[in-house]
Write a protein that binds this DNA or RNA. Structure first.
Lengths: 203, 203, 203, 203
DNA sequence: GATGAATGAGCTTTCATTCAT
DNA sequence: CATGAATGAAAGCTCATTCAT
């Protein structure tokens, strides 16, 4: 009986994840979810209090990890040197390790959290994440290139960095592929940032 | 009568733009729009045939310009040289001219078109734009660095490039500011791309 | 100016007649009528108080004639003889004269009155007409064939007689054709009635 | 639960049938139907997908039978003889058997199908039926009385025949009564047709 | 645990009619 | 006379949620 209950719950969660990913929270329909999970509307409410709650069930672990990551982040400042002197292949390898830590957390539920939570209490998570990373970029900019004028780019680059990661997770379901592309994504971002800052240095 | 009619239409369009930007097409409510425009539901339909049509009214000019841009685009390949030899300030100035042509088109209605049209006939515009730009990146990669392995990055970078532009338009309503930041955004992208390709060269 | 006003009124009436005939009173749309009459909604209400009133304007003459006809009808009892002894061609000629009197009244406005007035105060006209004619059939039945059992047929035949006439008016706009067919319709009805009554006689 | 569900469905179907018969498809209101069935709008849509679908539920069986009847009809040509030699009581008995086969199909749902389906996919059923029967009359006319001039009467008589049947079904809910009157209706029609054709013969 | 009927507020859209200009 | 903007009630339909069984 216990297993049965667990299995039903699992089916509902999977169906919900699919529906939420496809349509977003608001446009997702409980009717579709229960149909996909081969159960009934009434039974849904035996397992989850509401549409919001099943969304939370899917997303909350990732959410807490994210918050933890944000609060306890230790920045490693490898990149603080002239771009001409960088060994890109070494950098790529180093960033690969960073990516390897990230990738397990950057799963479909992460996608759910940042892409589909618009009408839930998680509405602001994406922005908070972008702000947090944007702040880091900003600090890098300040310390590395204090004369750089367009400090707003910090948040903008953060935003598109996250978006790039989302794009990767959306398109590529294979973990290794994700690992490679997210590494490349970090590299691309780091080089782009260094690039505009070196330009800024010349001012 | 003429002035009054125009004014009501303007109020409706403005209210609709706001509502669509906030909630997206589907979740936007005619009731909210007419309330904001201080008129009634029935009167809305004296001005616009349907929810779809007022959305089109807002978006169609930008849409056609975009299509035209995509079909008639002439790529200028300034960046095809080693990154060490680039004069970034010169590049920045050059890209500033490119940005200056783009900025007038990248307005709030462009935002509407690519961010809020999900449940309209414009649903695919964003993807088409990303594909188009992604194709260009891909061609650059192929000609400039044929050994580069992660060709999928072409589309990913295209996607985040567009997203960065969207971010800028969302946050900064001042045209000059937009101009500066979009220039910087293009520069950042170009340098990032060149960066990962030079890394790829070393393989 | 007078002519102008008259012409506008005429255009509205014509457009309304067409719309009412096509869709019936309720589903007819003032917007369509004014569009067809090349004027505006507001102006419509300068000429007619309401949708009901323009319908009345179209129909009222015919309605009053019909009421007059019903109240002052003199029945001519030509048919009261054994069917075997009838000279059908003579009968056809005689009924042709009857039809000739009817046809001018059986125009498109008559159609409007009996077919399209369902949601107006004329809703019952068709039934009254059928009842009236049915009563005549009933009286014929009673006097000619008092043993005939299915006296309900009186009203039923009346109903389909009217329906046949309506069918003719709908399909054939040419007056002469109408004249011929309505004659035939009366003949058909008379012969049918005599037929079932002669059968009834044998009981 | 089973019984309850069936009962609600039955109540809805009955209420819908009544509403459709009174107002026709378009003017019938779901809100009225659910009020009469003592339930709510939302619940209506637990039972039927749409207004069209509940109409189909009422009408489709009859519709298919009608199509079958039209396609597989075998005409029995009893009446092809001089009217003077007809034993009307025998004919009446014979036609009574024909009517007996028809009557079960000519119920209130048949009424719905031919009288109230104007704004549904069944819009044309009545015309098709009239055309079909009209064609038969036409064939009889051609073979029996090739010189008859007003061949248009074929369709006109078909139309009023159907209308007479409709009238009977509308007014008389008792099956036996319907049986008797429909028999008489067929007889009336047959005799009327023979009558005008014999007249035509004399030409 | 499971069922799905029931609820009611919400949606977009239509339309006859009013009225200020 | 003419205009058409404005009104508001009503339509068909959707959906998360409740609850009796």
């Amino acid at each position: 009986m216990q297993t049965k209950k667990d299995e039903m719950q699992k089916r509902l969660l999977e169906a919900a994840q699919k529906e939420f990913l496809e349509k977003g929270f608001k446009k997702a329909s409980i009717r579709n979810i229960v149909k996909a999970a081969k159960t009934t509307i009434g039974n849904f409410y035996n397992y989850f209090e509401s549409k919001e709650m099943i969304f939370s069930s899917l997303v909350d672990t990732v959410y807490k990890e994210l918050i933890y990551f944000i609060k306890n982040h230790q920045d490693v400042d490898v990149a603080n040197q002239p771009i001409e002197q960088l060994d890109i292949n070494f950098l790529r390898e180093y960033l690969g390790n960073v990516a390897a830590q990230l990738v397990p957390r950057l799963n479909d539920d992460f996608l759910l959290l940042v892409e589909c939570g618009m009408d839930t209490k998680y509405a602001n998570v994406k922005n908070e994440l972008i702000d947090f990373i944007g702040l880091h970029f900003f600090e890098h900019i300040e310390s590395y290139s204090p004369n750089y004028k367009n400090i707003e780019m910090g948040r903008i680059i953060s935003s598109q960095f996250i978006h790039g990661v989302i794009e990767i997770i959306k398109k590529y379901k294979d973990t290794e592929k994700r690992q490679v592309l997210i590494t490349e994504q970090i590299l691309y971002t780091a080089l782009g940032v260094m690039g505009i800052l070196q330009g800024g240095r010349n001012d």
